[in-house]
Amino acid sequence: MQQNVVELENLNFSYSEDRLLLKNINLNIAKGKITAIMGGSGSGKTTILRLISGQIKPNQGKVKVFENDLSKISIKQIHDIRKRLGLLFQFGALFTDINVTQNVAFPLLEHTNLSKKLINKIVAMKLEAVGLTGTQNLMPNQLSGGMARRVALARAIALDPELMLYDEPFTGLDPISLNTTAMLIKKLSTSLNQTAILVTHDIAVTMGIADYMYFMANGEIIAEGTPQQIKETSNPAVRQFINGEITGPFQYKYATKNSYQQYLEQ
């Protein structure tokens, strides 16, 4: 039987009382595979990653990571789980008061007793893997957006976590760095048997590297399957998303009161 590293069961979540953001989400992430989550802006993809990393709690339903129900375990156990996962933040979230080396070395310094020399070596390796050799002594404010994002990627993979959560690793990258990053994600998955959750908008690249895909719209999962199945799907919303058509069943709207109701209330 295939083993799942992450399972979301009948999950509901809302930030505020008047709007349910995630509705009845069921999602399984298989071990050693790359699973992509796609969907429009604001459909709740980042929120799912925040749920999996235990930063927020679901209103209903279960989040299971490494077979632990996050709502049933202590803070300390959540910390133990977090040591086994890496999260690439959508906006990088680099520490702005320390340089690139110290940023990438941060998890190594906190969780291992490696010597300084070895840590520097690992940092250099990770930076090379993301294509940023020689940036060691720059401060985060001296990096371009795409560079900062790749430094954040290097920091997230520093400890070679079993589970990687990538929040839009490809946005703002030039085609070469984009391919480098995609290859890196694939390589980590195949050579280290790392499980990956990939949140992205980039259909073409994702089709190439993902093993399984989920499509989200308006807080629900509307389609799932292997890239091949997705390519052949007849689901009009997915087809619209893949082809980037403006009109169709899939609508970018912030699910809230209709505008005329707002006028009436004023």
Binding site: Q55, R82, F95, F106, P107, H111
Partner: peptide
Amino acid sequence: AEIGLMKATEQLDAMSVMAVDPIKR
């Protein structure tokens, strides 16, 4: 200001996801 900005730029979140308690650190 420093703590507030670290919070606004998700640095504190990043730390806690790396299993480091930002309050202690």
